[in-house]
Simulated scan of single mutants.
Amino acid sequence: MARKKTQAYTEEFRREAVNRASKEGITTAQVAKELGVSAQQIYNWRRQFTRLSDKQFNTVDGVDYSKQESEETRRLRRENKKLKEELEFLKKAAAYFANDQK
């Protein structure tokens, strides 16, 4: 028996489905019927969205909450701090040698 090919929905589509199903006056089943997905799928997306899992819904309002992105941010902050310290040292050294030449 052939497996049914699953539809890959964009994060934006999933987010919109969850938001629409969360509004008063409309049920999840109604939204699911309008969008051609199962109500259970919307419930799954809502749960994933709430958890901000590693595989889906990693961004909220343009902020990436994935583990990989967080590690990269921490690494860049450490590197930035080190570079600022080196820059301060070089400024002081340049000022010292500038005064020494006078």
Rank of each mutant, 00 (worst) to 15 (best):
Q56S: 06
T73D: 14
K67I: 15
K102M: 04
W45A: 04
K67Q: 14
K5G: 02
E34M: 01
R46S: 11
N44R: 10
N80Q: 10
E88D: 14
Q40D: 12
E34H: 04
L83N: 04
A17S: 14
R15G: 01
R78L: 08
V31P: 02
R14W: 02
F49R: 03
T73F: 12
K102G: 03
D100L: 04
K102C: 04
V18P: 01
T10K: 04
Q68C: 07
V60M: 00
R20S: 13
A95I: 05
D100M: 09
Q101M: 11
T6M: 03
R51N: 15
E16H: 01
K92N: 08
V60Q: 03
K92R: 13
F49T: 02
V37Y: 04
K91N: 15
K67Y: 15
R14K: 10
S66E: 10
K33Y: 06
N44W: 05
Y43E: 01
K4E: 08
R51T: 15
K5H: 07
A98L: 08
G36W: 02
D64G: 06
D61G: 03
G62I: 07
D100E: 08
R47S: 14
L90S: 00
N58H: 04
L83S: 13
K55A: 14
K33W: 05
K55H: 15
I42W: 04
A94V: 10
E71V: 08
M1V: 15
M1S: 14
K81F: 01
K23L: 14
L35V: 06
T73S: 01
R78N: 12
E72H: 06
L83Y: 00
D54H: 03
N44E: 11
E72Q: 05
R3L: 08
I26Q: 03
A32G: 00
A17H: 05
R14F: 00
E86L: 11
R47H: 07
L76N: 06
K102R: 03
W45L: 07
E12Y: 13
E69M: 10
T10D: 02
I42N: 02
T50C: 13
T59E: 10
E88M: 07
K91W: 12
F97N: 09
A21L: 00
V18F: 00
R78D: 09
N80L: 04
Q48D: 15
E85N: 03
M1Y: 12
E86F: 13
E34Q: 00
R15K: 14
R51V: 10
R3N: 05
G25H: 06
T59G: 02
E88I: 11
R3S: 14
